[in-house]
Design a binder for these strands. Structure first.
Lengths: 211, 211
DNA sequence: CAGGGGGCTAAGCGATCGCTCAGTTCCCGG
DNA sequence: CCGGGAACTGAGCGATCGCTTAGCCCCCTG
């Protein structure tokens, strides 16, 4: 079932028809983009007539907003859960990157809509989404700042590095394919290591500085 | 002039009307996406009637292909020129990332079309673009491989790291804004440093291994 | 069994899409 | 001064768009 990866995020949506429309819209938006997707296509994937869409959602854009909001909330929650209860900053960063990357790979269909269809949102809807996006940036930047304070990390440009790590994770949604040679777990592991390198992580016990 | 950043890539296109259409299409595709852009909009930006578009290009998709082809050729050329004549692998990697990032920032309008509208290309056109994309991947992977051979780099997963560095550079096109707090040069400098860290670069003279 | 409201469909509205075509303008060789 | 072709426009074609409306079905309540 190709929708397996999406069920997790939208499983709680009711009624059933509204959820089926959401799932159809996610796949359609991810494949063709918001503007190229017709309401007839979405309704067809949900096994309904085009008119049925407007019983559950006011407009096509509202459907996009629902997807974007739930998707952003999930990805922020994933980040928040990941950084909880870690022993040190290095573990916190590794966990955060692992989880964030895994989410973008496993839910790449949803993630593509979340990350690349922002411009199709209406003005007020966009403003509400931006708040959620800022939240995830702050979480990651906080991890880097704390690591620098504790001496675990060596980062000349914290803000820039935080943005780069975020960017690296997000771009996974663009190129990831289930048919590719790597699983989401493997990519998460690799990227966690790369993020630690970007943060200038010094393994415990080795605190001598060069130069 | 907002088209200043685009002129460089498409300055050689003749006749004048064909170039103006290209410039209009680049901006329109970047702002709204290929499918959401109307031929009337493109022609309007070029100061012509909608029908004039079809004198210079067979279809709207052919316009996209021209933009994508020229854009990919430029970005590959930028990479190739960057890696020439560098003293060692570290300098080669730093130059490559600096140049590639700068191109994606300075030409972010073109780069967005190049990187995010691939799916709108026709089948044969897409196949021709993929060849160009593979080329830039190979260039970067070659730099990393050589650095590992020479002992300058420490990279457990060369293929994955090459993909990650590429991904990091490409994603600049998504978030870069001229109104942002960083110039393309500054981002290039930061990212070159981050790429060296990702490659496990050991500064010359320090060849001792840990463990 | 009657009454009514939510979920759904068939049909279609006005608008707009990519693209075509007949016709006008203008430049350029002879 | 003339003939012809390239560049371009106004008008419009058939198709399709997001969305609406009128009405049907079916289940719930009493």
């Amino acid at each position: 079932m190709t929708t397996g990866e999406i069920d997790e995020s939208f499983g709680g949506v009711t009624p059933d028809a509204a959820r089926r429309l959401l799932l159809g819209a996610v796949r359609a938006f991810a494949e063709r983009g918001f503007h190229a997707t017709t309401t007839r296509d979405i309704a067809g994937r949900a096994g309904m007539s085009p008119a049925a869409l407007y019983i559950h959602y006011k407009t096509k854009e509202e459907l996009l907003f629902h997807i974007s909001r739930v998707g952003h909330e999930r990805s922020v929650a994933v980040l928040e859960e990941a950084v909880e209860g870690a022993a040190d900053s290095a573990e916190r960063l590794a966990r955060a990157v692992r989880a964030f990357v895994r989410w973008h790979a496993e839910h790449h269909t949803t993630a593509r809509v979340v990350q690349y269809e922002l411009a199709a949102l209406g003005e007020e809807h966009y403003a509400r989404i931006v708040v959620l996006r800022r939240r995830s940036e702050e979480i990651l930047r906080g991890v880097l700042e704390e690591g620098v304070r504790s001496g675990e990390f060596d980062i000349p440009d914290i803000r820039g590095t935080a943005l780069a790590v975020m960017s690296l994770c997000i771009d996974v949604a663009r190129w990831f394919s289930p048919e590719g040679r790597r699983t989401p777990d493997e990519i998460g592991e690799l990227y966690a290591d790369l993020a630690l390198r970007m943060a200038g992580h010094r393994p415990a016990g080795l605190t001598s500085s060069s130069g």
